[in-house]
């Protein structure tokens, strides 16, 4: 018996949801970033699953690009964190509340 496609998609959905919960819940900036990466990967999984389902390469190519973009984003984001840390000595995002009324 082969794995039906729904299983992969459900798994991707679950991972995505877990990642979302992490983004909304955690206080540590790095951890939030990790959760975002998790979400991205969940999406990657679903793309590849679809690629297999529809027998097209498009899904895999998209994943390729997502990978590249995720790398770029991670780099820039972490650089930002470093910059912020230099000034505030913390990456507790609750302390970054300039938009508060």
């Amino acid at each position: 018996m082969t794995v039906p496609v729904t299983w992969y998609l459900l798994l991707a959905a679950a991972l995505f949801a877990i990642g979302t919960a992490g983004v909304l819940t955690r206080r540590n900036g790095i951890t939030i970033f990790l959760s975002i990466e998790l979400m991205l990967n969940a999406v990657n999984l679903s793309f590849v699953a679809y690629s297999r389902l529809l027998d097209q390469l498009t899904g895999q190519l998209v994943v390729f690009f997502v990978l590249a973009v995720a790398a770029a984003e991670a780099a820039v984001g972490l650089a930002l964190f470093i910059a912020i840390y230099r000034h505030r000595r913390t990456i507790d995002i609750n302390r970054m509340n300039l938009m508060r009324w």
Binding site: T20, V23, L24, I93, N94, N97, M99, R100, W101
Partner: peptide, 14 residues
């Protein structure tokens, strides 16, 4: 609801 906390806004979005 206007906490100024971006996380909360993200929650509303979600």
């Amino acid at each position: 609801s206007t906490t100024g906390n971006v996380r909360d806004y993200l929650l509303y979005l979600f």
